[in-house]
Each structure stands twice: as structure tokens, then as C-alpha cells.
């Protein structure tokens, strides 16, 4: 009698660089995807035990609970300064910050600009979801013109609040920047591109080429007031036209993976 042979092969596991703790993020939020991609890249590079992360103030304030590595929690916007301090006295460590748009592009605008300008050997993961999530959906520096938030209830009026801040475009102008790219997390193809970009950013740091940042267009269904599925569509239809995806700066010496 012929037996059916069952072969079990594991194709999907939790990266070692993530802890077992379940996240506090809302259903449909893309922070979880971003966390996982970073963890996979750190695993693949084999640098988990040599990495120090810095969490921001915002929805990802508790990121240190989810990454299985040494972590500091910075003051609002100051993660690049804290990362600078860590990296300068520990040049052999991999140091990265994880920051939202309010943290990086508003209150921490000076710190991120000067970290890039100095060519600080750190990697920045910039989550742009066009809103302040943690405080309940207020206008961010990246909020789109006309976008309704709890502090722009009639929609962002550019006469009143000015224009969205395009951080990749700004930071790519600094000579210290080695790798500045914008990716999106709204579908599988883009998620795969985002992961490659994260790998390149960490490689740029490891190769000592300068400052690296990956901006990730992300969703916030809760504060946008739409379903998770519609939120992903909204990234594509509304955010991508304002924040074009692409490579804003890639150091000529970077060996891209």
C-alpha cells in the first residue's frame, strides 16, 4: 500500500529581531508591517546583537517593546540627536531611529536636518501617515492640503497652515546624506520594495557612507476615519501623488542589494 508522504516546510516565522509581545497598533495600521520589515532586514544582516534602536514619541513610542534588541526611548523629535550621541561613542554599533511625521518633520525638524547634514552614520525609518496618530488625529506637517483632521476640521488650508513638508526632497539636498528614498506600504509589490530599501539604508550605514533614511508612506485608518482597505487605497490615490515614490539620493559607492 502506497503511503502519502507529507512534507512540512516552514516558510514564514517571526523574525528573531521581534519579541513575542503583541503590538498595541490599531487594526489596519501599517506600523506592524514596517516593524516586521526592519526586523527581517536586521536578522538577515545578522546584526541584532550589535544594534541599538531609538523609539520616538507618537504611536510607535512603545516600539522598544516589540524589537528584540537594545533600545532607547527619546524625547519628541530628538531621536536623531540621541542616535548621534549613541553612534559617536559606539561607532561599531548599528544605530537606527524609528520616527513618525510629527516627530521627525515638525518638532524634530532641526535634529533630523543636522543629523543628515553632519552625515551622521545612522539609519532613520520615517513613517509618514499624514497625521498625528497618538494624540488622536491632529494635523501633521505632512497632512495633505484639504485633508480633514481634528485640528483642521475644515480641511488643511494652505493659506492658514502652509504646505506639506516633503522630507526626502529636503534632506536629499544635504551633502551628508548617503541614501534617501521614499517607499510605500500600500500593497505587496511596494512592501517588497520597501524591504529592499531598508536593507540598502542599513548597508549604507554599515559601509560608513553617511546618513540614511527610508520614508514609508503608511496608513492610519483610525484617524483617517476609513476602513483599513480604503486606507491603503487612499495612500495610493492621495499620498503618492503628493509624495512621489523613488530614490532621492543614493551614494555612488553604495553596493545596492
Amino acid at each position: 500500500m502506497e503511503k502519502t508522504k507529507m512534507v512540512e516546510s516552514q516558510i514564514y516565522t517571526k523574525p528573531e529581531s521581534l519579541t513575542e509581545i503583541g503590538t498595541h497598533y490599531c487594526p489596519g495600521c501599517t506600523h506592524g508591517i514596517a516593524h516586521r520589515l526592519i526586523a527581517e532586514v536586521i536578522d538577515e544582516m545578522g546584526v541584532r546583537e550589535n544594534t541599538i534602536g531609538i523609539a520616538p514619541v507618537g504611536c510607535s513610542v512603545f516600539a522598544y517593546n516589540y524589537f528584540n534588541m537594545d533600545f532607547a526611548e527619546a524625547a519628541h523629535g530628538r531621536a536623531p540627536a540621541m542616535a548621534t550621541g549613541i553612534k559617536r561613542v559606539n561607532p561599531d554599533k548599528i544605530v537606527f531611529t524609528y520616527q513618525g511625521d510629527g516627530d521627525l518633520a515638525s518638532i524634530g525638524a532641526a535634529e533630523i536636518l543636522h543629523a543628515a547634514g553632519r552625515g551622521e552614520h545612522i539609519t532613520v525609518i520615517f513613517i509618514n501617515n499624514a497625521i498625528y496618530g497618538m494624540t488622536g488625529g491632529q494635523m501633521a506637517p505632512t497632512t495633505l492640503p484639504g485633508q480633514r483632521t481634528t485640528s483642521s476640521p475644515m480641511g488643511r488650508d494652505i493659506e492658514l497652515h502652509g504646505f506639506p513638508m516633503k522630507m526626502c526632497e529636503i534632506l536629499s539636498q544635504t551633502d551628508g546624506a548617503a541614501y534617501i528614498v521614499r517607499r510605500s506600504l500600500h500593497d505587496v509589490a511596494n512592501i517588497r520594495k520597501a524591504k529592499k530599501a531598508l536593507r540598502n539604508a542599513f548597508e549604507a550605514q554599515q559601509q560608513g557612507l553617511g546618513f540614511s533614511m527610508v520614508e514609508l508612506l503608511s496608513s492610519c485608518p483610525t484617524n483617517w476615519g476609513i476602513t483599513p482597505e480604503d486606507a491603503l487605497k487612499w495612500i495610493e490615490s492621495h499620498m503618492v501623488p503628493m509624495y512621489p515614490l523613488g530614490d532621492y539620493k543614493v551614494h555612488s559607492a553604495l553596493s545596492v542589494k
Binding site: I52, I54, A72, A74, A75, R78, A81, M82, A83, T84, G85, I86, R88, V89, N90, A110, E111, L113, H114
Partner: peptide, 26 residues
Amino acid sequence: RVFLQAESEVAAINMVYGAACTGVRV
């Protein structure tokens, strides 16, 4: 050793914070 002129006192104290988190005298 490390000397760095920061962009502001706000940044300077947070650089101090970061470096001190790694157990060195700052």
C-alpha cells in the same frame, strides 16, 4: 575621544543622553 558641536542646546543634551545611555562618562 568624542567632541561634537551640536546644532542647539536641545540637541546637545539629547546627544549627551544618548551617549550616556551606553554607559560612558559624558
